[in-house]
Design a protein around this nucleic acid. Structure first.
Lengths: 348, 348
DNA sequence: CGCAATTCCGGAAACGATTCCGAGGCGTCC
DNA sequence: GGACGCCTCGGAATCGTTTCCGGAATTGCG
């Protein structure tokens, strides 16, 4: 293992045949029993393993697809991974994951190098989209599917969620429950998800004729501690909120924690709704109402779009949008219907 | 993008220079301003991106390292990923993740093909170890570091946890709290982690002179629902347990849920200790006592072992073991010291 | 038994880069 | 002013496969 890997030449020599014959046997294009036997024995003898790099230089394919996201620790991406994997596996591809760590430079670098690097295609889930992203997308050497919003004129297959509508659904629900001082615990304001959730929040307030109050809005990053901290601060306000909409489930878990530590009860004193409907929501206490943005479905669709493009490179780029839906659990209503509410037709 | 990628030849033609010159410019081995300018312009003009496959065929390296684990959804692996990533990044490697889905065949296949497939090294975290694993390890074409137990005669770099001792620590702690009917909610009995946790559980009972009772032991898989189900069943026993040791934090979350739904209080009625000390433990309610098996440290060590071997292929294989430690939170003691207890010296 | 068709295998040309080697140009120093 | 050395660049070999092509051997059929 240490020194030198045997090549197809070594096998050919050991078997006393030409390298082309070895290749044929290995790829199953030979019928002669005797030849097959000899090559098999020689392979065994020298311990040959084909060089995938050389193979794909020749065949121009790798059998691999990459999924690049910000943070593999985020359960929403996890749901995507779980949905993408079986689709690609069935099509004979191996899925490789890459976690960029919310670093734009790294994201671009992944696009540039991973796209031309040992994969046949790429599913990218950028949290920010800059001009440099777009440019990198244009020069990508392999098909790329983007999960997330993209300017209309970028000719790339694209799956998106409607998190603005999703946020509005959450607001509508909380308003129906009679909540009037609804706080927003959002992610970073300079990201696409952060912005659109804020917009949906505003949509909801506007529809109810409630003015936006800055002390009830907090931009953090998507973490438990930040969610807990932001909620704790708001609960100390003179007029504390009677409900929280958290921009994802991890933040919502933090909110739940802060509410408990303030000695209040969910949902009696404070209602809480999260977003992404990850596994966390079902395992939280009380079980967390959450707006599903269809992560699994987006993953599946992205994988299918990629396979489609791999099969026909010249196909026109497609764009798919997945509708959000609210999953009501105990954290926002006294009873526990655990019911799924479809998005209001015609809202937004 | 659709038809044909430009190669270095196209750049050379466009620039009116030799391909060797293009290569030199791209690799920074040229000082002539004029030449650099011409090549840069030509690269821009034809939209050239180097083929990483061709590069690594020639240079015999890829700049990539893979981490293959059972399930990326498991927070313990996540902690490893987070620890591995910075070490490798600083050394100039990109980290690729692969989730095998607990499928032994897939694991072997990953070993076989990924090891000879576009990576310079591999960190493998197998949940089961079969003879086929060992054989695949022997013929792996690139250095492999295994996280987990391995027979002594396999010459592979190896990082291990001592989950048996870890389980014993949890038992010792619960016994100190006065618990006597301690239930074990374990993972699958036919996996290495499952077996060793059971052994540690037995060690703990034996040390206290308490006989093992089969109705207090349940082998499930590592999931929330299974943990909740197993705990719920045990709580319905004539003599229900007064404590649960769960083989990982997800199972423990399920146990907490079942205890709550039975109308009991943690830790007053039932104490709970989990394992792996993942993020879940700190965000649970009440915060979960958990035995840390040093996932992050194991990841970091594995990455460093791999880098070491990459630097010196002929180095003798190393084996490192990380000691477990118990992190006490509210779920197992009335007060909340949140203290860290080091392992007993000389236990086991 | 002879000829055409088919099968089978070996040689060699790619794939797209890096890198060694040698030729030429130019500066420097005696 | 000539010899020497250095720098730069172009040509060609090479990495380890797959695949095309052509010749030899085998088969089938008249």
């Amino acid at each position: 293992m240490a020194t030198k890997q045997p090549t197809i030449h070594d096998v050919a020599r050991a078997a006393g045949v030409a390298i082309s014959s070895v290749s044929r046997v290995l790829n199953g294009n030979t019928s002669n029993r005797e030849m097959i036997e000899r090559v098999r024995r020689a392979v065994e003898e020298v311990g040959y393993v084909p060089s995938a790099v050389a193979q794909s230089l020749k065949t121009r394919q790798t059998g691999q697809v990459a999924f690049a996201m910000e943070d593999i620790g985020n359960a929403a991406y996890l749901a995507m991974v779980r949905a993408i994997q079986p689709v690609l596996r069935d099509a004979g591809f191996r899925l490789l994951l890459h976690s960029t760590g919310a670093d734009v430079n790294d994201e671009i670098e992944v696009l540039d190098s991973l796209s031309q690097r040992y994969v046949d295609g790429l599913v990218l889930c950028p949290i920010r989209v800059t001009d440099r992203h777009i440019e990198a997308l244009r020069r990508a050497a392999v098909p790329v599917v983007v999960i997330g919003s993209l300017p209309d004129d970028v000719p790339v297959d694209n799956v998106r969620a409607d998190s603005r509508l999703g946020a509005a659904l959450a607001m509508e629900h909380l308003l129906e429950q009679g909540c009037r001082r609804i706080a927003l615990v959002d992610g970073p304001a300079d990201t696409v998800p952060g912005r659109s959730r804020h917009l949906g929040y505003q949509d909801g307030l506007r529809a109810a004729g409630i003015p936006e109050r800055t002390e009830l809005i907090s931009f953090t990053d998507f973490s438990f501690g930040q969610g807990a901290g932001a909620a704790a601060a708001m609960l100390r306000l003179q007029q504390p909120p009677d409900a929280f909409f958290a921009a994802n489930d991890v933040l919502a878990m933090g909110v739940l924690q802060a509410v408990r530590e303030a000695g209040l009860s969910v949902p009696r004193d404070v209602a809480v709704v999260g977003m992404d409907d990850t596994e966390l929501a079902a395992t939280a206490w009380p079980p967390l109402s959450s707006v599903s943005l269809g992560a699994a479905e987006r993953g599946r669709l992205a994988a299918e779009l990629l396979l489609g493009r791999l099969a026909d490179q010249d196909r026109a780029p497609k764009r798919v949008t997945v509708r959000p839906r609210l999953v009501v659990r105990a954290s926002s209503v006294p009873a526990r219907p655990d019911a799924v509410r479809p998005p209001h037709e015609g809202s937004r």
